[in-house]
Design a protein around this nucleic acid. Structure first.
Lengths: 205, 205
DNA sequence: GTCTATATAGCGATAGAC
DNA sequence: GTCTATCGCTATATAGAC
């Protein structure tokens, strides 16, 4: 929460501190989950006291929400800066996303941990997780439908089902990969799936 | 921990109580994860005090281990009683597993929650989760290799990669399904994947 | 085998001074 | 905006009586 005094002064230090807190909180939530993360530890690593931290984020839950919002925003920027992939190009763009993910395990861990923690009772990230999946599925399904409309795809494809399965595969591979990175070549496995999918999707393939 | 006194008396009540504790602990771990579960609540629901609970399981971690061991054992019994599926029959058997899972959401939740919680730092279920995936992958991959040896499958199949992808899909669908059961028809989506896989696998398909 | 009582520690959040 | 001090609560685990 910025005050008008901050704003008059340019609020540089306030925003920098806020950013730093969010950065560290992201790491801690990824490492220990929401329940396993302690505000005192986040505060200590950010170089302020625990009540000092709660001056910027009134509750632990608000800190989590801020972390999730920042991540969603950054991911969107990253993807749409890459390209506005319509139709089947989206699938090869997703392969690049997975390749990028394999270089940032801590962010992958954040999503895996929080998404699954969210299926427990009364978890503050529940609505976020549900909405995120809905958005992802709709996004992939729409691209498939556009591809079908453009004749890139043989008719009879169930776009929603295919979208759900692509996302499920991405997620499932992430968990196996985080637990045993040497045994699981996540990008190769995902690429193989997309390649096979494209082979069956294309008309007269 | 049974004592010799229990054993002489037939230890009926002791074992029954132990079973009851494990049953309730399974539900609690599924609902709240390991970190979110309180021994006091498990004890209360089991009808004894919290130190009374710790008489049967010396630590919270040992209670978790006992729950996981019991689940693994029950699942094995269930599957191998169903049939000893070798070769490609295993894949249709997996479809039946997913159908069964869709009728026991709480057990699915247990695995989803604990497996993902296990990717956090210093989690007591980490070794269990890693070993379980290794076992599952080897099991599916071996069946695929047997199918290839019997000529059921066209040559050139990467059994390990295919196994990892099948399991990843099962897992990813579970998460989406738990968050939004009405939007995700988990068994149908998994069956569709297996059907397509079988179509590409069979020689001259 | 189970209890009460308690040790010990950590948690999130608030009050109020500066 | 940040601090110290503290409240109120919950947690796991132990001691010792019965």
């Amino acid at each position: 929460m910025r005050t008008s005094t901050d704003r008059r002064r340019g609020y540089a230090s306030g925003d920098a501190r806020r950013e730093r807190i969010l950065h560290i909180a992201t790491q801690e939530f990824a490492e220990h989950g929401y329940r396993g993360t302690s505000l005192a530890r986040v505060a200590e690593r950010a170089g302020l006291s625990q009540p000092g931290l709660l001056h910027h984020f009134r509750t632990k839950e608000q800190l989590l929400v801020a972390v999730l919002e920042l991540r969603d925003q950054r991911d969107m920027e990253r993807f749409f800066a890459d390209e506005a992939a319509g139709g089947l190009d989206l699938l090869t763009a997703l392969v690049r996303v997975v390749e990028h993910n394999s270089r940032t395990p801590e962010l992958v861990r954040l999503f895996v941990v929080l998404t699954s923690e969210a299926v427990t009772a009364d978890h503050p990230a529940q609505d976020w997780a549900r909405a995120r999946y809905e958005r992802l599925r709709a996004w992939v399904a729409d691209a498939l439908r556009r591809a079908a409309g453009a004749g890139e795809v043989r008719p009879g494809l169930d776009a929603d089902a295919t979208a759900a399965r692509i996302i499920a595969l991405m997620d499932g591979l992430q968990t196996q990969w985080l637990l045993d990175p040497d045994a699981i070549d996540m990008p190769a496995l995902f690429r193989a799936h997309i390649d096979e999918l494209l082979a069956t999707l294309r008309p007269r393939a």
